[in-house]
Design a protein around this nucleic acid. Structure first.
Lengths: 232, 232
DNA sequence: TGCCGTGATCTGTGATCACAGTTATCGTCG
DNA sequence: CGACGATAACTGTGATCACAGATCACGGCA
């Protein structure tokens, strides 16, 4: 019995099916913007380059289609959806509210360890944004890491998952834009806003955290909308 | 050319794959509570009763698992997840905020036709809640119809989709409870709150609409939590 | 009587084949 | 030389088969 009890100490082993791995792979490509709106995919080609059969790809793609991260056209073509200008505006509004809620909850519920993670990612982002020639891929990941460090600290996993779905939709647009306008990283207001968010969460000021994160999202969205690369 | 132009007038024909139909079927069973938490499913049995192969069921189930509307246990069993008490509380908080946002947006953006739909569903629900022996299945559908009539009127389809995902999670719990406590329909405060929400949306009072819908959600959640049928 | 090994059975996962519909390519006709 | 039409290649969808792992029931050992 003691032996059994010993073995049951760390049993949360989670099985990773091939479908899960393919899903995670494509998802990362989308959020980081390496798959741009309009890009076309095919089950067989993806299966080929990933060295698996078509089945796991089908499973992963069906999930991404359900998230509207991919779409299958009436002609049975598979592609990254083009985001209309209006939809991007709406998503910014929704994200400001939902991610603001997560930030407010984080200010109230964060643990000390989570606060440390937030501070670390904030510092990384701040230092990177001051660099003269920043690595864009790393900057994108830094920004994402900071935001999700905040959201994870909310203690609301269901909310984090919803936000993840939103990022999956806007990721291709945001990161494609950042790649074309690298100066936004330095001239934009992201870094000081992140610092203020960290301060608000540290002091437990929920409403301030909510407003700052919402402002960060609106700022990025307004910048992209001003560049007007979106159809409609 | 004129013939082609004529044909392209109404081409938004949407193909319904078998997978889509299976997904819609299971989804309806979940939201209406006919599949209760803990219920077990199997790909082959579902495929059998629906008269299709296993493939469309796999496609549908993989989507529902991605939504956390179903879960596949480490033992490769497929079942409706049990909702923990804490998670249900968190979901109520999230829903109050998100669905409140949708209601507020509906107060500002609803069309006249949408307002009519909201009023019609409100009346249906009000009459039904006064019935001495109401049909519970119909009551559940009425409540759902009213809420989503409001949310559709927000003009934010992405937000409606998020809310749909939330209802998919809480549906089994809420409707299972309503089935066991039918008196909630008459004694609860749902009907007057719905009426007040309709009034707020009619007059364009966004903040009042937000608060009323949030109160409706919290009221139902508190009732269920007081019954304490949830684990943990 | 209580416990554990062992087989049959059922599970989701992955691969392979078949098919209808679309797209792209190229040869041919006007 | 340009436009049309047929054919070949490719698309997602669905069905069927194969397999490893897990559950369950039965039976034998202690």
């Amino acid at each position: 019995m003691s032996a059994i009890k010993a073995l049951s100490s760390a049993p949360p082993l989670e099985r990773q099916t091939l479908g899960d791995q393919v899903y995670a792979h494509i998802r990362k490509l989308l959020i980081s913007g390496r798959l741009a709106p309009g890009d076309k995919l095919s089950l067989r080609s993806v299966a080929d380059v990933m060295g698996v059969s078509m089945m796991p790809v089908r499973e992963a793609v069906s999930r991404l289609v359900a998230d509207h991260a991919l779409e299958v056209t009436p002609n049975r073509a598979l592609r990254v959806p083009e985001m209309k200008r209006r939809q991007f505006q709406d998503l910014a509004l929704i994200r400001a509210e939902i991610e603001g809620l997560a930030a407010a909850s984080a200010a109230l519920n964060r643990t000390a360890a989570q606060l440390g993670t937030i501070a670390a990612t904030e510092q990384r982002f701040r230092l990177l944004s001051r660099t003269t020639n920043p690595d864009l891929v790393e900057a994108v990941e830094c920004n994402q890491a900071f935001h999700f460090a905040v959201y994870e600290a909310s203690g609301l996993p269901d909310l984090v998952e919803i936000i993840g779905g939103l990022w999956l939709k806007v990721g291709p647009v945001i990161n494609l834009d950042l790649r074309e306008n690298p100066e936004r990283l330095a001239t934009g207001s992201a870094a000081p806003l992140h610092a203020e968010a960290l301060a608000a969460i540290t002091s437990g000021d929920a409403e301030r955290a909510r407003k700052v994160i919402a402002a960060d999202i609106r700022g990025a969205a307004d910048f992209i909308l001003s560049r007007n690369r979106l159809p409609d």
